[in-house]
Design a protein around this nucleic acid. Structure first.
Lengths: 128, 128
DNA sequence: CAGAATCCTATACGATACTG
DNA sequence: CAGTATCGTATAGGATTCTG
């Protein structure tokens, strides 16, 4: 659960840019390799920890737990725990995250389109 | 201009997720602290290298140059060089990046809204 | 099941100096 | 002006083990 040196130049820059640039603000919240992905999968409905793990096989336990915690702190996911044996934990989107829904959808659409565009470029006939 | 070890688990995971998850695909293209920001500033029109540097004071030369290069390789920016003394370089958005415009705008809007929401939470009266 | 703790590596990023 | 090169540090992320 690595700690962060708040005084590092890197973090200072993050802070400064976040104040002056809304895009940076968003990136600080859903950037990284996993946070947006987690939210994306939660968009189809609340999920258990283990379900998320199954949906995103490439993620490690550490990253999943860590990012879920951060998303919770940023008011983007709710966490509901049933203290059973074995325990059950359900994660779901907050209203704030729900407003990201059209954005993430649009990003997904763009990805499909862009990927097709790249494929087309790569399979272009060599000869004129 | 640090090289990347293509075989690292981290990179493998990036690749795997990119294939199965459109969001990861987008994040690999505009993620990180600076790429989306650069695109955002280019949305208001073509800019010179030095103009971008001025618009994003917190970015270092290295990051700006490096990310511009990657954005170019990803077909998100055009680079037009005038071989003068001193040289002039103009960066502008490609059609692919232009399709990201509504998405980045929506992200910016969300940022403003979310930031306000967070501020409100923090200034909530302590007493019931 | 849902995670926390520990340890480790790769990479992202910053600072600075240099160049056509 | 528009970069590149080199070096150093901090963080992101992975592997593994442990626990209520």
């Amino acid at each position: 659960m690595t700690k962060v040196k708040e005084q590092s130049t890197r973090n200072q820059n993050k802070g400064i840019s976040e104040l002056s640039c809304p895009i940076t603000y968003v990136m600080n919240k859903i950037g990284g390799n996993w946070k947006a992905t987690i939210l994306y999968y939660l968009m189809s409905g609340p999920k258990r920890y283990s379900e998320l793990k199954k949906l995103i096989p490439a993620i490690t336990e550490k990253m999943l737990a860590q990012h879920l915690k951060q998303l919770k702190e940023d008011n983007l996911v709710f966490k509901k725990e049933e203290q059973l044996k074995p325990p059950i934990t359900i994660y779901s989107l907050t209203p704030a995250a729900d407003e990201l829904r059209p954005i993430l959808m649009a990003m997904a659409d763009w990805a499909i389109k862009d990927n097709k565009r790249v494929q087309d470029l790569m399979t272009e006939p060599i000869e004129k």
